[in-house]
Amino acid sequence: MKETISHNKEKVISIENLSKSFGKINVLNEVNLEVYKGENVVVLGRSGSGKSVLIKIISGLIKKDSGHVAVLGKEMESLDSKQLQELRLHIGFSFQGSALYDGMSVRENLEFPLIRNKRNLSKKELTESVEQVLHDVGLLQTIDQMPSELSGGQKKRIGIARTLILKPEIMLYDEPTGGIDPITCVELNNLINKVQEQYNTSSIIITHDLTCAKTTGNRIAMLIDGKIERQGNFDEVFASEDPRIRAFYNYNFITRS
């Protein structure tokens, strides 16, 4: 279990009373959450509990109904599209399904955000950046492969590499270990910790995998029925007598056994 980060540090994400509904379905209900510099916060919850919606609101992909979201000190609702685009360069988003561009090779996938945002880079600088970040995720050998030739775990790593290439301050991981075998899960958890140390990122990790939560999270936030019901380190959260939290823990334990 990872140690807790001091809350005297600077807040990089601040969420207050965030609510979001889709039609009549209330997905997020008065959510409050803060992420401090250098901290990995794991948001745990069942499928459909609004975890992915939460990080999509933080990255500006989905609009909130009410509440406040501030990222790196900037209120999301006050940003115009250009400012939002600039802010997004400081946020890395690792998608659940990797979201690699099918028509591009691994090299082109990684070059794409660089070419789009840093247009004055030479070909040599591009290649160096791509090779460096691929080396960091341990997949330099896949540089000229197409996404369809990669395994699920490799795709996830390349997806993370693509976000790291812009050197983000914040990482948002959507189910990083979803649909992956246990050994690859361990490798991905180690990679998330390596990214935190090497790139000095603050992260929100969305998962329902307790091993991932325990290995990568400095703090755990339990999202149940659209509300953060409990926060703290792993042991503090699961010391709860709340039957919903106990059931979540027991279910994970039973299935893993």
């Binding site: 999509k56 988003f93 794409f112 789009r116 945002n117 812009l166």
Partner: peptide, 12 residues
């Protein structure tokens, strides 16, 4: 497959 979202969050 969220590739359009990925493009958007990478500043494009």
């Amino acid at each position: 497959t969220e590739q359009i979202d990925a493009m958007e969050v990478s500043g494009t």
